[in-house]
Design a protein around this nucleic acid. Structure first.
Ligand SMILES: [Mn+2]
Ligand SMILES: [Mn+2]
Ligand SMILES: [Zn+2]
Ligand SMILES: [Zn+2]
Lengths: 143, 143
DNA sequence: TCAATAATTAGAATTATTCTAAAAATAGCT
DNA sequence: AGCTATTTTTAGAATAATTCTAATTATTGA
């Protein structure tokens, strides 16, 4: 029952009126609410399909523009798996992504609190990390 | 003076005659030696340019085919940065990649020996990891 | 030697994304 | 409110990395 969006738990664009220094147009608000409501990792095309339900006139170019604006303002994250189309993630906590090969699902993988990256990696001398991406692929053996 | 390929240290295709269960054609051998000689992270296009120096008739389609075969047989690794073209890595030890925003260079980041991924990540119950990709972007402050 | 299979090749096709340029919306004045 | 500058949206064209197609060439192994 985790992360299951019921009809009554769905949000509307007006529930997300502002993102820091970004002018909130109707389209940006709609795209943002699509991501905040269904908390999965849709592609731009999937965001487009969902956004059209509420706003049938929105264009794919605008969805790309809105996603870019939201990413640049740190409101959502862009995640990439191999060469597949980019996906967009509403979870702003530090986390990686596990791609389940069986179900195709993408699962957020939280970074353990207090864990330091430098415990795992031999970082280059003087490296200042602006961005970290951790991607896992595999299966979930449920028995 | 690390990882500097001098003229005399360059290798030729015949220095890499075999990769486990993969039929070693002239083209595959050439592509493989390009990767093993210059130990950086070239794109398919860059591999193509380098391979043509020794084998002017090789085609880009073949370079893509060879790279795919080498990746599938675990002889080289494919690495992706955001939506850029794929790059190919000859380093088979477990490591991540640091993309230096200033120089554009890609630096291998070794995993510390003995470090466990589960110390850093809250992996999903029963996750069997087939593939791990760690990508870092940032600057190197040298002072 | 001779089929069967696999690899290479040039060029066409695909597809996610970006670009272009015109229309619409918005913001900041007066 | 009107006016103007700026930003955003939009449809459709363009781009570019990669994959596909179908013909040719190379290799295997009976
Ligand atoms: Mn998938
Ligand atoms: Mn770069
Ligand atoms: Zn996520
Ligand atoms: Zn590498």
């Amino acid at each position: 029952m985790k992360n299951n969006i019921t009809e009554s738990s769905k949000c509307n664009a007006e529930d997300f009126p502002s993102v820091d220094g970004l002018r909130m147009t109707r389209q940006r608000s709609e795209v943002y609410s699509v991501l905040m409501s269904y908390r999965d990792h849709p592609t731009a095309g999937e965001v487009f399909e969902r956004a059209k339900e509420n706003m049938p006139t929105i264009s794919l170019a605008t969805v790309y523009n809105c996603l870019e604006a939201l990413v640049q303002h740190g409101a959502v994250r862009q995640v990439n798996f191999e060469r597949e189309s980019s996906r967009y993630c509403p979870n702003l906590t530090e986390h990686g992504h596990f791609h389940d090969e069986e179900s195709g699902k993408i699962i957020d993988v939280p970074l353990k609190k207090g864990a330091k990256l430098s415990d795992l990696l031999d970082l280059p001398e003087g490296a200042e990390i602006d961005n970290l991406e951790i991607t896992l692929r595999g299966k979930i053996s449920n028995n």
